[in-house]
Every structure is written in structure tokens, then in C-alpha cells.
Design a binder for these strands. Structure first.
Lengths: 218, 218
DNA sequence: ACCTGAACACCGTTCAAGT
DNA sequence: ACCTGAACACCGTTCAAGT
């Protein structure tokens, strides 16, 4: 950077993490290197080690910066609608930072920023009538479904993803893959977009509602 | 290697991919390098490039080798049970090759080996009465849930994972995280093991069954 | 106290040379 | 035809030196 305002401690963990997130969003996980990030920030490579002990620690901060963005406005209305909105928010955040998902994989993140969403989900579920154990299981399942959906988001644009999938499925030998050959178009349509995500989310919410009714707590 | 039996073409893509899978299972994704793999195979680094154009291509072959292991025996019995067994098999395979999940993330895999499972799932769903579009959506959702669950499998053993989670949740400020603080034990229990996975799977299957009944095709 | 270049032990891959 | 060392352009991180 030209003409740094403050000569010392001109950076913060937060600024670095945000710059790293931008870099990763723009150029992919593989583009993230301490050397490149330092150059981008106009600073020597080793300066970064004054803020983060290792690349691993920086990575955790990036994930935290990304998840902190998830909105947790709990709307009025029935629990299904509230939970639905919450998970749509999670998915939107994950979709905005596709490589955040890749960085996150190694271990569960239990930072306060990430747990705001979990807290909101637990509150909705307990108010709906689920006991603590079921609420925890339900939230975890919903989150993992959402996370799974975001993980598999291909880097290509939706139409291109569908087109390639359809072509690959059509190329399968029909005798060995009769169901998939016949449903190539339908299967390809599930590979991108909001619709398949919301379809599965609604089935899951149906299943949760059925449990609540069975337990006589609806 | 001392005294190679055949001097030329002594390797095959398959052998290399399997050796790479072993390396990755034993030492993690980061341990996979062309140089190290070549050394392990007793061969010059560049020899590998005679079989794979790039590390990316090798990675795809590793994922393929891992997914090829998934059993696709479709048991007798009701569709729910069949689908349940199928997804338990997928999860078991993913759990056996934890880093396979990490390698897989970049783009959808559409190899024949991986699609055997999809074909089986589609057949079960269509026989159950779902039309092609719903069968495709249902399978995709089930798969993404399963994949999400496997992705988040922490590298630590289950008890250690639960213990750490509980400690982290107990450390949260109670006023800000009332539901999570109270449900720390229950939430920690959802972080590992088969039970939470099967619980969510059953809720999802409940939701699918409800749809089938609503459409009058049960 | 804060910053950083040089150095070390690694990478993937190209290229030209070996047999 | 098949294999491979040397070389190039990168990594993360330690360490000692700069201001």
C-alpha cells in the first residue's frame, strides 16, 4: 500500500481475515497463500505471523468472518416458517462464500459467531414443542443437509452444471443404468438452484412435524 | 523398489490410485504429493505423469476408487428399509475414507462407479411410487444429507469430539445463548456416532412417506 | 516492540535427456 | 517407448537481523 497511515500495528486480525476471505472468494482456496496475501496487503510475508500463529489459525478466522454474516432474524409466524427462513439464510451465506465450505471441513467450528444460528434454531425448535434432545438432533440434521447442499455446489454456473450432468447421464449404458438414463433430465435439474434445496428442506420439515404430532405436542 | 519384476509399464492407474488412497487414509489429504507417492511406489516422480496428466486427475481417480467400494445390495422389503440400508452403506464408505470427502468437494462426480448407488436409489424410489422428478429430488436430498453428515465427521474419536463440544457450549454466556447452554449435553451428543445420523434419516424418510400418501400413491 | 529478508525443506509441473 | 533428473516457479515457517 502506498503511504501507510500508521507505521506500526497498521493491521488487525479482522482486516487480514477479511482480505483473505475476499481473496479466497475471488480466486479459490488454492490461491490463498501467506505470501500472496501479504503482498496483497502491502506487507512482508512474515508480518502476518505477528497476527496469526499459522495458516491454520488464519483459516479458522476466515471461516469465522464468513459465518458471522449469516442473518439470524427470527421472523414471526409458525415454527416451520421460522426454521425454513433460518436455513435459507445459512444456505445463502454458504453460497456466497463457496470456498468457505472447503476451508471449514476439518473440524467442527464452535465459535460464538457460528453458534448464534444454532442458538436461534434451538429456540425455535423448543418453542415448537420438541424436547432438548430432539431439538438438538433436528437442528443438527437440518444444518448438515444445508451444509451438504452447499458443499456440492459446483463452481460452474447452474445452467452449465445441469447441461454437463445431463450429458454425462445420457452417456451411461441404458441396460446397466435404466432408471438414471430415463431420468437424466430430472436428475440434472436437481444439481443446482434453489428449488431442489427447498424441496428437500420441506420434506425434512414434514418429517419433523409428523414426529411432533406423534408425540402429541403439536 | 529392489528388483522390479517387469521393467516397463510395471504400474497401472488403478494401482497408483489405490496406493494414493491408502496414503491419504493413513496420513491425511495434506500428505498427498506426487513426490511422496512416487517414492512410496519406488519410482521417479515424473513416472506418475505417464499415467495421470495432473494431480487433479489423480485425485479424481482416488475418489473413484473409494466410491467404488460402496455396497449396492438392494435388500428385500419395503422401500423405506431399502433406501435406509443404501444410505447407511454410503455413510459407512464415507466414514472409512474421511479425506475422500475433502478431495471430492470441488465438482460433482459423475463416474460410473459413483452412479451405481444413484441408480439403485432411483429404482427404489420409482418402485415406491415417486415420479421421476420427485425420485430425483428425493435421492439428491438424501445423498446430500448423508454427505453433509460425513463431511463434518471430526478427525477426533467420538467421545473426544463430544467432550470438547460440551465444554465449548458450557463456556458460552448464558444470557446470550440460553437454549444452547441448557442443551449443551444434548447438542454434544449429536456431534458423532450413528444415532444422530439415523435419527435425521428417519425424519427425512417420514417426510417422503407423507408426500407419497398425500399424492395418493402409497 | 514491531517488522522482515534470507534460508530451509518442501510443492506441481515442464523440458530435455537418458535407456 | 518408457522413464526420470534437473530446473523453474512456487509453498509454509524458522531464525536472526534489521529499525
Amino acid at each position: 500500500v502506498t503511504g501507510a497511515a500508521t507505521p506500526n500495528r497498521s493491521l488487525s486480525r479482522d482486516e487480514i481475515a477479511r482480505a483473505a476471505l475476499e481473496l479466497v472468494d475471488a480466486h479459490g482456496v488454492d490461491a490463498l497463500s501467506m505470501r500472496r496475501l501479504a503482498t496483497e496487503l502491502g506487507v512482508g510475508t512474515m508480518t502476518l505471523y505477528g497476527y496469526f500463529r499459522s495458516k491454520e489459525e488464519l483459516t479458522a478466522a476466515i471461516v469465522d468472518a464468513a459465518t458471522a454474516e449469516t442473518p439470524v432474524v427470527v421472523a414471526e409466524g409458525p415454527w416451520r416458517e421460522q426454521l425454513r427462513e433460518l436455513m435459507l439464510g445459512v444456505r445463502r451465506t454458504l453460497a456466497r462464500h463457496p470456498s468457505g465450505v472447503q476451508l471449514r471441513l476439518r473440524r467442527p467450528i464452535l465459535t460464538r459467531g457460528a453458534l448464534r444460528v444454532t442458538e436461534a434454531g434451538m429456540q425455535i425448535l423448543e418453542r415448537a414443542g420438541f424436547d432438548r434432545a430432539d431439538a438438538a438432533r433436528a437442528y443438527r440434521s437440518l444444518f448438515l443437509y444445508t451444509f451438504g447442499y452447499a458443499s456440492f455446489g459446483s463452481p460452474l454456473d447452474p445452467e452449465e452444471t445441469k447441461r454437463r450432468t445431463k450429458a454425462a447421464l445420457r452417456a451411461l449404458p441404458e441396460e446397466e443404468y435404466p432408471a438414471l438414463s430415463a431420468a437424466a433430465a430430472e436428475a440434472a435439474d436437481t444439481m443446482a438452484g434453489d428449488e431442489p434445496f427447498e424441496w428437500g428442506l420441506d420434506r425434512f420439515l414434514d418429517g419433523l412435524e409428523a414426529l411432533l404430532i406423534r408425540r402429541g405436542r403439536a
